[in-house]
């Protein structure tokens, strides 16, 4: 479904990714892990069109993503969350989710300005759907609350609801468990599994929380200094000496 081929990118002489290739299959939960600065979020930024790589190819369902603007990539069915959360801080949680639905709605400037019945019907349906999504991430009570005043864990969940509002095929989650307590992480894991099992979503997750990674991933790819050092099932990579060395440092060091 998502194919990354020989991807390289550097920022001002600093190599963020070099020669990275991987393939994510439909309905797979795929985890990208690695120490800080390994280039995990950069992968998301390239896939969503925010960063342009110096070499390599990214394909989504056979289509080249690198020629598309970010909003077009979003409309192809790729939604994401952000590592340091990018909620619309001064807007309510409900409005945040409604903006996620932007590409699904048809009411434009003129029809909106005239307040045609079509627009109000569409708005009412969108609000109901947005509330259902807030409910799903456990935030329905916060629908009218300014997003910026929510605790970090709630903002993370709000971003998931906003991403889901776009009815994506591929969901990119950037450290979704950051700032969540163990109970919340369990709920999150169930949510992600449910999205795949019930709705057939494909999920790529960047995460430090090993419990989550080991608990839900079908396959894991380990990055260090922008290169793949290991990939395979959670069990395989947990036993890989190269991975252990990257995380804990070699014995000589």
């Amino acid at each position: 479904m998502l194919g990354v081929e020989d991807l390289s990118i550097s920022f001002g002489g600093l190599t963020a990714l070099s020669g990275l290739s991987f393939e994510v299959a439909e309905r797979e939960i795929f985890a990208l892990i690695g120490p800080n600065g390994a280039g995990k979020s950069t992968v998301f930024n390239v896939v969503t069109g925010l960063s342009r790589p110096s070499a390599g190819r990214v394909r989504f369902r056979g289509e080249d993503l690198l020629v598309l603007a970010p909003h077009r990539i979003a409309r192809r069915g790729i939604a994401r969350t952000f590592q340091n959360t990018e909620v619309f801080r001064q807007l309510t949680a409900l409005d945040n989710v409604l903006i996620g639905r932007h590409a699904q709605l048809r009411g434009g400037l003129l029809r909106g300005a005239l307040g045609l019945p079509f627009v109000w019907r569409e708005e009412a349906a969108a609000r109901a759907a947005a509330r259902a999504l807030l409910d799903r991430v456990g935030l329905v009570g916060a629908a009218g609350v300014e997003a910026g005043s929510l605790p970090l864990g709630a903002q993370k969940r709000l971003e998931i609801a906003r991403a889901l509002a776009a009815a994506p095929r591929l969901l990119l989650l950037d450290e979704p468990a950051g700032g969540l307590n163990p109970t919340e992480t369990q709920t999150l894991m169930e949510l992600i599994r449910g999205l795949r099992d019930a709705e057939g979503l494909t999920v790529v997750v960047v995460e430090h929380d090993m419990e989550l990674v080991m608990g839900i991933s079908d396959r894991v790819l380990v990055l260090n200094y922008g290169r793949e050092i290991s990939s395979g099932s959670p069990r395989e990579i947990a036993a890989d000496p190269a991975v252990i060395e990257a995380y804990l440092g070699s014995e000589e060091a």
Partner: peptide
């Protein structure tokens, strides 16, 4: 960036 990611 979040607006773009939402398809705006």
């Amino acid at each position: 960036i979040a607006a773009q990611a939402s398809g705006v």
